[in-house]
């Protein structure tokens, strides 16, 4: 009995060891990708902050009448879902989908970004705005610009009354939180300026026309920023998941080695007992 079980345990140790090799390699890869993704994410910050300031300046003019500030009649909604390209990243994708599924109804259109999101909503038969954004990592600012123009066109046309974004925000390498935010209509209250509106601000052309002109840029910036955040989150989530998988594998190997040694000791003891018993006869 002892011999067969020893062999079994040895086999298990070997298989856990090769799994551990894979998880620790994935952890290293995710770690280095995370470094790059974080850099890219931080590079988008100055633009985001400046763009928000511009929109805040326009929104501070209380008399601006713009379709961007008004909810459209249509009850339909468009949800932009930014998820990962691959699995094995802990609950990263699941957290995004949990939030997104709560928003998606029968007359909802979905703009999925990332392979996991595209696959999921295509499989479910949701109405997709586009299914070409398969790689979050590869989404360029031009792609975002195209998306923004399309969303704005459909929004102004009244195809949907609201555009919502579901993505993940990078708080730290250990914490990433899935969130939803309304992209359109823009709520002026969201941009409460810290100081009182600058009365001396000269706008060319007028506020409403200006808003029409800068809105695609702003929205593209928001989408690009969210995509960069999402990539960093995915990598961080994968690194953490693989880190704990590697630790679990180590724990398992040490437990298995213990039972292996115990089984080995048991078989030796048994052999000795048998020999002694044979000698006594």
């Amino acid at each position: 009995m002892a011999g067969a079980s020893m062999k079994d345990i040895k086999l298990r140790i070997r298989s856990v060891e090769s799994t551990k090799q894979i998880t620790s390699a994935m952890q290293l890869v995710a770690g280095s990708k995370l470094r790059r993704a974080r850099q890219r994410m931080e590079d988008t910050r100055p633009y985001m902050n400046a763009a928000r300031e511009v929109i805040a300046d326009i929104a501070a003019h209380k008399d601006v009448i713009s379709p961007f500030f008004r909810k459209q009649e249509s009850a339909a909604r468009c949800v932009v879902v930014i998820a990962g390209d691959r699995g094995l990243a802990g609950h990263y994708n699941a957290a995004v989908f949990n939030l997104a599924d709560g928003l998606i109804g029968d007359d909802t259109q979905v703009l999925p970004i990332g392979k996991k999101a595209v696959d999921r909503y295509a499989r479910r038969g949701a109405k997709l705005v586009s299914d070409v954004y398969l790689k979050v990592e590869r989404v360029s600012s031009y792609d975002c610009r195209n998306m923004a123009e399309r969303l704005i066109e459909c929004f102004l046309h009244g195809d949907y009354g609201e555009v919502t974004l579901v993505a993940t925000t990078f708080e730290s390498a250990m914490t990433q939180t899935a969130f939803t935010t309304t992209l359109l209509p823009v709520t002026p209250a969201e941009f409460e300026p810290s100081e009182k509106p600058r009365t001396q601000l000269l706008m060319e052309p007028g506020p409403a026309a200006l808003l029409n002109a800068v809105m695609p840029d702003y929205l593209a910036g928001v989408l690009y920023g969210a995509a960069c955040d999402a990539v960093a989150c995915e990598m961080a989530a994968r690194r953490n998941a693989m880190d704990s998988a590697t630790k679990n594998a180590e724990q398992m190997i040490s437990d298995l080695s213990l039972s292996y040694n115990r089984a080995r000791q048991g078989s030796i003891t048994q052999e000795i007992t048998e020999i002694v018993a044979g000698a006594e006869q």
Partner: peptide, 8 residues
């Protein structure tokens, strides 16, 4: 010393 200005 330009005044506050905003344009597209």
């Amino acid at each position: 010393r330009h005044i506050d200005y905003l344009s597209a």
